[in-house]
């Protein structure tokens, strides 16, 4: 932050802390809201939720890159050079996940569903009941 005075820079740091903290809190609140922890019976659309979370995370990442890692104040060539490779990652995400999804479809279509792993068959003493953990079950 070469163009800022020392005092301004110190303030900017505190502002950064507040911004990052606030975004994280917003993220967690939306997450809890979306998964039905805030309002009984309310669930957010999964695509919308995923999109929101990705956008917030990217904002956080850009903020860390720009302010904390000073990328905002570096030359444009360096910024562009570092950003361009992530086009490749974008295509990788599309291709990998699409193919992973198709792998599941194949498993389902072939009727050869992944064998479900069973815990070893329980041998319980008669007087013990495992029912007391029932409260962990979530709707």
């Amino acid at each position: 932050m070469a163009h800022l005075s020392y005092e301004e820079a110190k303030k900017a740091v505190i502002r950064g802390l507040i911004i990052l903290g606030a975004i994280t809190i917003i993220e967690v609140i939306i997450a809890l809201l979306a998964k039905g922890h805030m309002i009984e019976g309310f669930h957010m659309n999964k695509l919308l939720y995923g999109f929101l979370m990705a956008v917030f995370s990217i904002i956080k990442a850009l903020f860390i890159l720009g302010e904390f890692m000073h990328l905002k104040y570096e030359s444009k060539a360096l910024r562009v050079g570092l950003a361009l490779p992530f086009i490749l990652i974008l295509w990788a995400i599309i291709a990998f996940v699409h193919d992973g999804n198709s792998y599941l479809q194949r498993r389902l279509d072939s009727g050869n569903v992944i064998p479900v792993e069973m815990p070893p068959v329980p041998v319980l003493p008669a007087h013990e009941t495992p029912a007391e953990h029932g409260e962990h079950v979530k709707k």
């Binding site: 997450a31 995400i93 990998f96 996940v97 992973g100 569903v113």
Partner: peptide, 18 residues
Amino acid sequence: ISYATLRASSLTWPDSDF
């Protein structure tokens, strides 16, 4: 990306908030 791929190819996936 490997995480996303394996998650996409699994029938179920536990919810993180649980």
